[in-house]
Structures are given as C-alpha cells and as structure tokens.
Design a protein around this nucleic acid. Structure first.
Length: 288
DNA sequence: AAGAGGCCCTGATAGC
DNA sequence: TGCTATCAGGGCCTCT
C-alpha cells in the first residue's frame, strides 16, 4: 500500500512532534510481523534515548538516535499514528492526533515519548521493523536499494545502463526497488499512463524520448501525490488520521471499464499484480 | 544472473 | 444470514 508519497506524508506528519523527545517506553505487543521484531534489542537501545533525525528513504521511515537506527516499512497495510499521552481526541489546531476508526487490535508497536505516543498499526502484518546499531550497517542496508526517483542520480543514463541485457517490461522495472525505489503498484500504472508508455513495452525498447517522458512523469505524479497527502484506497490514513486524497486524481488505477476520451481503461495482470492502462493511448513499442 | 511464481497475513467484498 | 472464493497498495525466497 504505502508507496513513496504515503510514507513521505507520514514522515511530515510526525517528525516535528517526536524529534528530540525522550523515549520512555517501547511496547511491542505483536512481534510477529513480516520478520520477527528484535524486541529486546530495540528496547535496550531506544529507551531513555531520543530520535535526533527522522527521514525517509525509499518506502522506509528511518528514526536515528545515538544508540540505534530504527527503520519501519509499512508493508501493504501499515499505518503510523500519533496520540497524545491521554489518548485524548483533540485538537483542531495542534497536530496531535487520533484515528477514531482505527481498530487497536492491530496496534502492534507503541513508542511512548514525552507527551505523545507513536503507534504502528498493521492488519496484514506485511510490514517490518529493524534496528541497526550504527550508521555503517544502516547505510549498507540501503546500499542494496535503488536510487530515489526524485534524485538526480535517477536519470536517462542510469536507466539506459540498467536496462542493458535485461528483458523485463517497464511495469516490472517500476516495481523493482533495486531499479528505482519508492514506486508501487498504484503509481506505476499512473506514471505509465501519464508518460503514454504501454506497461508491456520492454525496458530496453524504450527510446530516448520515452525515457525523458518517463522520468518527467515519475516526478510529476509523485510530487503531486505528496502535495495531496498520498492516496486512500481502503484504509490508508496519514499519521493524523486524515485521509490523503490523491486517489481523486487517479486516471487509470482502479478504473477498469471507465473511459478516457472514448478509450476504455483495461485491467490486466502482470507478474501477479494488476495493471491498469489504456491500450489506445499507451501503444506498445517494439524495437526491431 | 535474471525472471517468474509462490508465499507471508487479515479484512473487505462479491456471489451463491 | 452465512458460507466460500477472490482480491488488495510489498518484497523475500526458491526454482529454472
């Protein structure tokens, strides 16, 4: 679920409230996430400390402290919420939060900070949490993950080189976190529609004009989605419980059968994931 | 090495 | 109403 824009929205919602606040307690109710949560290691390294930097890389949130760097991946259904200490539902002008519709059943991890409480909720438990004791191991982890799509390193030369000797189609590459990080299944469809590229076109068959359009569309769609606070499909809400509303800007995702200037949107399955596209406006390109 | 498919898990929804 | 089947935004692992 949460792709780059949703993770970025979450980051912006929480960072000022928890930065440099003392961590009083870390309560791990459900350690069986995608991988077993290292309960004692996290508690040992974080309790009594504070987060000096909170940032995003790919679809991960990174919480840095002197004694350990926590990373959180939200998987398919993970969300982060911030409550004030008394759980009170407030507060229109402050940014403490509540999510009245959130079933606490899936509140797997709670971090108690001075004056507030950070909650990790994840019904499907596809998300995960890891801790790296030093910067070096943290960097090593992210070295295996591809460039940020909004970074200059993600450019035409990089893409061109990456596609050499590879046969996959472009939809698959957009989901491949080693190629580019942060794009997921929703924005992949939207990006390909915006760039007028068929999801079936092989990466190496894209010409230079298409690559230029692709990069431009990636930036345009992601920046716009961040501006709208991400997307809500079923239950995604940012950390303040408000719902992102980029989905009202979807052109193709979840719009099977709808028309765009008389052309129908089609849903197909690629690599076991749904792709939405408009065959007439996104013609497949084959290089001889 | 690259690529395709299976799998982890719960909840919402559709169809009978 | 209540069963069952299908599907969902991710990414690791295994097999070829």
């Amino acid at each position: 679920m949460p792709e780059l824009p949703e993770v970025e929205t979450t980051l912006r919602g929480i960072q000022s409230h928890i930065l440099n606040k003392k961590i009083d307690e870390v309560d791990i109710r459900q350690p069986n996430l995608r991988w077993k949560v290292p309960v004692r290691l996290i508690q040992k390294n974080l309790i009594g400390e504070s987060f000096s930097l909170i940032r995003r890389r790919a679809k991960y949130l990174i919480f840095e402290s002197l004694t350990g760097n926590l990373i959180i991946h939200l998987g398919m259904s993970g969300t982060i919420h911030l409550l004030d200490k008394n759980n009170s539902i407030n507060n229109t002008n402050s940014s403490f939060y509540n999510s009245p519709n959130l079933p606490s059943k899936h509140n797997h991890i709670e971090i108690f900070l001075k004056k507030c409480r950070l909650i990790y909720n994840d019904p499907r438990r596809f998300g995960f949490i890891k801790i790296f004791k030093n910067k070096k191991t943290l960097l090593k982890f992210f070295n295996n993950i591809g460039p940020e799509p909004l970074n200059k390193k993600f450019n035409k030369n990089y893409i061109f080189d990456y596609f050499i000797n590879k046969k996959k189609n472009i939809k698959s590459f957009l989901l491949d976190q080693k190629f580019v990080s942060g794009i997921g299944n929703i924005y992949a469809s939207e990006i390909l529609f915006d760039s007028k590229i068929s999801p079936y076109t092989k990466g190496k068959d894209l010409n230079t004009h298409q690559l230029t359009r692709l990069i431009k569309s990636i930036r345009k769609i992601l920046v716009k989605a961040i501006k709208y606070g991400g997307s809500t499909i079923r239950d995604y809400a940012s950390s303040d419980g408000t719902l992102g509303n980029f989905q009202s800007n979807f052109f193709v995702y979840n719009k099977e059968g709808k028309n765009i200037s008389k052309f129908a949107i089609k849903k197909v399955i690629q690599y076991g994931r749904s792709t939405y596209y408009c065959p007439e406006l996104q013609k497949e390109q084959k290089r001889k």
